[in-house]
Design a protein around this nucleic acid. Structure first.
Lengths: 157, 157
DNA sequence: ATCCGCAGGTTCAAATTTGAACTATGAACG
DNA sequence: CGTTCATAGTTCAAATTTGAACCTGCGGAT
């Protein structure tokens, strides 16, 4: 009873490209960020998320969802950033909980880090693709992501 | 002197989709594998690589390259697999070094794990995309990956 | 009021990952 | 042969990640 539909050559080509690119791109960005700014990609992600947020602050759980990370992982990394003086925790005004907020120093660090980071993102992926490819990937992988996010409703790690 | 070319909306859409899909797909596969077989995605990758190999065995360094992982990480995980009796280490015949080789038990475990794994890969990504999207992604991300692999010649972590 | 149940966060131990040192062995060369 | 080098793997401590157990405040039902 082998009902398994194995991957054909073309499907496998896509799958390995996707996996390999994901791993390598991530590593490359991590190296560049650590090298130039001492931040990890995750830490940069946290700060970028805070900076994007309309209030300049986010609740821990929102952060965890947005960055797709476990709550305890976030607690740890926000702790690191707090030690470094880049982020501050404070009780949340508009609802129970705690928000993380960029300090002035944190905002400055992010602004210093951003140009190099964006340049690297362009170098390793954005500028390597054609506009058409970017469009297709945005649609296709956006769909993949959204389906997984939905399936996750109410899941809490 | 702000020469930074920031990402426009479309570029950002692609970038976040790529990042998000990468993270979520990886997590999903890890969960499924641990749940059904007790293996991590990395361990599955190691065993699959060994199984693919013409000799049914690979040198540690080859494995590290193929799986895009650090050497010490491999040492650790191969150690785990060895403890579990799924993999065996032995001195390499045709050149110095050590090869890892699937045991019979390991091969059996891989065969048990594969159908569920492939099904999940289809469910989360392969079957979510159209053939045309798969083709574009294979080409585009394959290029991204290969450029990074080249730039890495001689790098050893 | 009091008791549940739970959402938001944290803590803690265990597992994993990292990177830098370290060991060992084969290859090239005199 | 003996020396020197580069390569293949391992080891070790430190950093990070995980998941489960644990606090805590709060709303609603009784």
């Amino acid at each position: 009873m082998d009902h398994t539909r194995w991957l054909d050559a073309e499907e496998m080509r896509m799958w390995t490209a996707f996996l390999g690119a994901g791993t390598l791109v991530d590593r490359e960005l991590d190296l560049q960020l650590k090298e130039e700014t001492g931040l990890t990609h995750l830490q940069y992600g946290i700060m970028a998320a805070l900076s994007d947020s309309p209030r300049g602050a986010m609740r821990m759980t929102e952060l965890a969802e947005r960055l797709i990370n476990s709550k305890s992982g976030l607690t740890y990394q926000v702790g690191q950033l707090e030690k470094a003086g880049l982020v501050r925790r404070k009780p949340c005004d508009w609802t129970r909980g705690i928000v993380a907020e960029l300090t002035d120093e944190g905002r400055a660090a992010l602004e210093r880090a951003a140009p190099g980071h964006v340049a690297k993102v362009r170098e390793v992926i954005v500028d390597v693709l054609t506009p058409e490819e970017r469009r297709v990937i945005a649609d296709a992988l956006g769909r993949v992501r959204d389906r997984l996010l939905e399936g996750e409703e109410g899941t809490c790690w």
